[in-house]
């Protein structure tokens, strides 16, 4: 059994427990927001999704450096899975943010909010990751180019936020400013629990994806050994293979 599959069951159970705890704290423990009421609850899912996906994008870049330094396929696989998961999380985060914006500001999309806008730009950039991989046939070149992309894009994430922030007056509620935020303790507890839950969910799903990919590679190898050249191609893929 590969290293990625180890601890998978334990991790899954812990993740499920944390998500339950996060949701329970959000809905039954954290107080209603004085201004926004029930709608503000979406904050406990939107912000963790956003933070985890952005960290995941940067993590993809770090794994990309790992690939360029070592040339080992496992780093390419990590980078691919981190970016893939982050993309899913970020689209979910964007949708949640959009719902929140509609509820509290009356519009589905708010250009005056630099955080939302820069988030969209980052998503647009990462949407090109898979098409790019898909159109490179040589697997070695695919991995190398994907690593270069992941590093540039990972570095782009914070720079883009700074520049977009400069371009508009801020509107986003700063719940996590440097002074520790204006949240009461009960909200903080619910928030950090949700954050850890979403981070664990990210790690678990990423491990599942990696395990599935390794299994597929192993299957293909065995198939080739059994059938020889008759095995035929299994179709093109954008993922490491």
């Amino acid at each position: 059994m590969s290293t990625h599959v180890r601890h998978l069951r334990g991790l899954t159970v812990v993740t499920a427990l944390m998500i339950t705890a996060g949701l329970a704290l959000t809905f039954f423990y954290a107080p209603l927001d004085a201004e926004q009421g029930f709608v503000q609850k979406i904050f406990y899912i939107h912000v963790p999704l956003a933070i985890v996906s952005l960290v995941g994008f940067c993590l993809g870049g770090v794994y990309g450096i790992g690939y360029l330094r070592t040339g080992k396929r496992v780093w390419d696989m990590r980078s691919y899975c981190a970016i893939h998961m982050s993309l899913i999380f970020s689209v979910a985060g964007l949708l949640a943010g959009s719902i929140w914006a509609k509820a509290s500001w009356g519009h589905w999309w708010v250009w005056s909010d630099p955080t939302l806008v820069s988030y969209l730009i980052v998503i647009l950039l990462y949407c090109t990751y898979q098409p790019m991989r898909f159109s490179i046939e040589d697997p070695e070149r695919q991995a190398r180019y994907a690593a270069v992309f992941s590093i540039v894009a990972g570095a782009f994430v914070p720079i883009n936020f700074i520049i977009v922030n400069l371009s508009s007056e801020y509107l986003h509620p700063r719940v996590l400013n440097l002074e520790g935020g204006a949240m009461p303790g009960s909200m903080k507890l619910a928030f950090y629990t949700s954050l850890i839950a979403v981070a664990l969910l990210f790690a678990t799903l990423m491990k599942y994806e990696m395990a599935a990919k390794e299994l597929r590679i192993e299957t293909r190898r065995l198939r080739r050994r059994l059938l020889g050249d008759d095995a035929g191609p299994l179709g093109r893929t954008a993922s490491p293979s």
Partner: peptide, 11 residues
Amino acid sequence: LAVHTRARDLI
């Protein structure tokens, strides 16, 4: 980055 991809004008 794009010149070695198949769909370079798009990528």
